[in-house]
Nucleic acid binder design. Structure first.
Length: 398
DNA sequence: TCTGGGGTCCTAGGACCC
DNA sequence: TCTGGGGTCCTAGGACCC
């Protein structure tokens, strides 16, 4: 999709089509999406909101409506699957489609691309761009060239001609850091990489990256489209490797109590998602970001995989306390659970006198109540507002 | 008012095992 | 008798993607 969040947020606003619009980018936030008029001022997604406002003070700022974005995304993915079941969602607004099996039914790749764009436009009233090629990485590059609202087909005989003159930073998987390193090594264009023997590349930048860069430079990456690879969309496919949550404080926090309360909120949310997905994890990791943006992580692997909020939280607290922070202001805290496995594959040792069975039951009761009455209906007592007021749509607490 | 939040993958060192 | 080689797991950090 082109400028997805901005397109969706303004699709019922004809008055905003020609003026700069920014979604997100509030206090301490970054721009989620900028429409094309805003991009003309240099605003880009991922940019700090403060910088975006300096570049384009007159832009209209819209809040992110994640529920709406999710619904539109689901509809778009569904439209993709009417073309082919071989859809690999990359994110809410982007997917790889393997259309080899659809050509007999729907025509050549360009016809399929235009048909897809017409459907999305008719059904969702937003535009998208399509890149077509024989490999994922070249198709990805082609789609970038096609933006906005276009189609670019790169045939096999055109790959070298399209790829080699481009900056190495245009390759999928080459970000700013790698681009700088490559430029420093004298690799400016994709052609420079292509003309260098793999072994030499690997020696200079590492085994995996060297191999990858060489493949990318020739457009020969063999990666197949893997349906349902991104699990956000819940269509089976590969299981998640990890689940996590993190939060930037509105203002840096140094009180242990405040930080732990946030850790509990985050852990409870992650554990709830894990239970909903039927997975448990053994490795608990916390992330801490200091006021100067320095970021560290600590992790601990427990004996048995768990999806129990209390157990995961206890591990997180131990990691936090082991840091020995003395009222150090923190900008962000995060929790992540790694090494996820299906819950059925976990067999509990269940030591005598352990309470985890009780905690697990409590979690499930909370999940059911939250499903019926809303997520804010039930929460740990330590997360209750001490003033007694209820936030949001909470109806009661336990 | 500098810099979100959700992820994946790779590297490198050390422990540990055979 | 002065030091092997292969493999796995754990931990921390970092690059990258959207």
């Amino acid at each position: 999709m082109d400028a997805f969040y901005a397109s969706v947020a303004t699709r019922d606003r004809p008055d905003l089509q020609q003026v700069p619009v920014i979604v997100g980018g509030g206090y301490r936030g970054v721009v989620l999406a900028a429409n094309y008029p805003a991009r003309a001022f240099g605003v880009r997604s991922g940019m700090p909101g403060t910088r975006a406002r300096r570049l384009c003070p007159q832009a209209v700022r819209l809040p992110a409506d994640h529920e709406l974005f999710g619904a539109v995304s689901a509809a778009v993915m569904e439209a993709f699957r009417r073309v082919t079941p071989r859809v690999e969602a990359v994110s809410l607004d982007e997917a790889f489609l393997d259309v080899r099996g659809a050509t007999r039914r729907l025509g050549g790749p360009r016809e399929i691309a235009e048909e897809l764009r017409a459907r999305i436009h008719d059904e969702q009233r937003i535009t998208c761009s399509v890149g077509v090629a024989a490999s994922i990485s070249v198709a990805k590059l082609a789609s970038r060239l096609a933006k906005p609202d276009g189609v670019v087909v790169v045939g096999p005989e055109e790959i070298v001609e399209v790829l080699h003159p481009r900056d190495v930073g245009d390759l999928y998987g080459v970000g700013e850091k790698t681009r700088t390193v490559l430029h420093g090594l004298g690799f400016l264009t994709v052609g420079d990489l292509a003309r260098t023997p793999v072994q030499e590349l690997q020696h200079k930048v590492g085994r995996a990256l060297g191999r990858q860069l060489h493949d990318l430079a020739w457009g020969t990456d063999r990666r197949e489209v893997t349906p349902g690879r991104v699990s956000v969309f819940g269509h089976g496919g590969d299981p998640d490797r990890s689940m996590g949550a993190q939060r930037t404080f509105g203002r840096d926090q140094h009180e242990r109590e405040v930080v732990l309360r946030e850790l509990l909120t985050l852990t409870a949310g992650v554990a709830r998602r894990m239970r909903a997905k039927g997975v448990a994890g053994r490795t608990v990791a916390i992330t801490v970001r200091f006021a100067d943006f320095r970021t560290i992580s600590r992790s601990h692997t427990i004996a048995e995989a768990s999806d129990v909020t209390q157990e995961l939280y206890q591990a997180a607290v131990a990691l936090y306390d082991a840091l020995g922070l003395q009222r150090t202001p923190l900008r962000l805290v995060g929790v992540r659970v790694e090494g996820l496995v299906p819950r059925e594959s976990v067999h509990r040792q269940g030591l005598l006198g352990e309470r985890e069975h009780g905690w697990s039951d409590a979690d499930r009761a909370v999940d059911r109540a939250a499903q019926r009455f809303g997520r804010s209906a039930v929460r740990p007592a330590s997360l209750l507002d001490p003033s007694g007021r209820q936030s949001g749509s909470a109806r009661g607490s336990a």
